[in-house]
Amino acid sequence: MKLSFLEPLYKQSGPFASVYLDTSRDAAIEDPDSAIRLRWRRLQDALASEGADRDSLAVLAGTVGSDTEVPGTHGQAVFTAQGHMALLDELPAPPARDTAHFGTLPDTMPLIVQHAPGIPYLAVHVHYGGRHSTDATGSVRIEAEAGTWPLTKVTPGHRLDEEIPVADWPRAAGEVGRELEGHARRIDVETVVVAGDVWARGILVHRLPASLRRQVTTVEDAGESEPGRALLERRLESLFHGRMAAHDRTLLDAFLAERARDGAFAEGLAPSVSALQRGRVKALFLNNHPESPFRLWIGPEPGQLALTEQELRSYGIRETSEERADTALARALVGTRAELVVVPEQELWLSEGVGVLLRYADPASGG
């Protein structure tokens, strides 16, 4: 997963306030706005106790819960820098718990994890309920959305909505297919999910360009999508559960190959930090442990991180602070333009929950 979306945040100077809040407005919540205000007051008190300034608290108070147009279960991630809004992002799922932090670095790992697996896809729903014949009356309606899973749950992708007479459908399906191909190319989709009437969708699939046709997965019982949410959301949830994006899978396979031959890889916190210090990391692999006790010392620059304060000072770095390891690692990855792959522990257990694929092997050490 590329982390370029966080570069504007890290270009700003701290201190940072970082807030993760459940802002769900689903039918199960009787008065969601009151619930959000109550949760925010608790976080506000926590931030104040950590030394958050009035400007930061005022900006946050005016922002949290502002996503009233987003339906269903979701959350917000809000960041300020020196009392100004720095980043606002919708979370496709509520955070495991509401949290707030004020400190030297923004707490971005929970946001990064919610962007995973980051699968680019195209969802297509073919609506038709008439006779399976081109001389029937009525029309075929096409809904399509190009997006990245799971972000499309709360951040709609590019939409297509067309209605075509049944008699014109065999010809028009080819035109629709070429239009869909254009949307797919823009985000380099790896899966095309098609639902709806078997006859009408079959005509569309057979007229798709070959590049798209090879990526098609058909699903049944799609139902109606909730306004403001991802097209075919429930079916996509089932289809993509536990799946990695193809790009991340390629990186993981490369890591495993290098580890098997003791090549360009490192595993464990200390070797991974050492590689990040030298800008050698192509991708970092993480078993996500939000409550991990590991901490690191950092300096002002992304590559300035170490297990001890003494090590940083030995490099001539005088401005140091101790931070949670995941917070320091996130900044280092963004600053060195390395990628992050979140790997379920049951799929690959990593020593101390972390490993790295190196840009090149060290001839002196073989790793």
Rank of each mutant, 00 (worst) to 15 (best):
L9M: 07
K11T: 08
F16K: 10
S24G: 04
D26G: 13
A27E: 13
R37F: 04
R42H: 11
D53T: 07
G75H: 01
Q76I: 01
V78F: 02
G83V: 04
L88N: 00
E90D: 00
P92R: 06
H101E: 12
T108K: 10
I112G: 02
P117N: 06
G118D: 07
G118C: 05
Y128M: 12
G130C: 05
H132C: 15
P170M: 09
R178K: 15
G182A: 14
R185K: 11
E190F: 09
V198Y: 10
W199F: 14
V205L: 12
H206C: 12
R207V: 09
A210I: 13
V216H: 06
T217M: 14
E220Q: 15
E224R: 15
P227Y: 02
R229N: 00
A230D: 03
L232K: 12
R234K: 15
R235G: 15
F240D: 04
M244N: 02
E258Y: 06
E258F: 04
S272H: 04
V273N: 07
A275Y: 05
R278K: 15
L284F: 11
N288T: 09
L312S: 03
Y315T: 08
G316R: 10
R318V: 13
E319V: 14
S321R: 10
E322D: 06
A325S: 04
A332C: 07
L348P: 00
E352N: 03
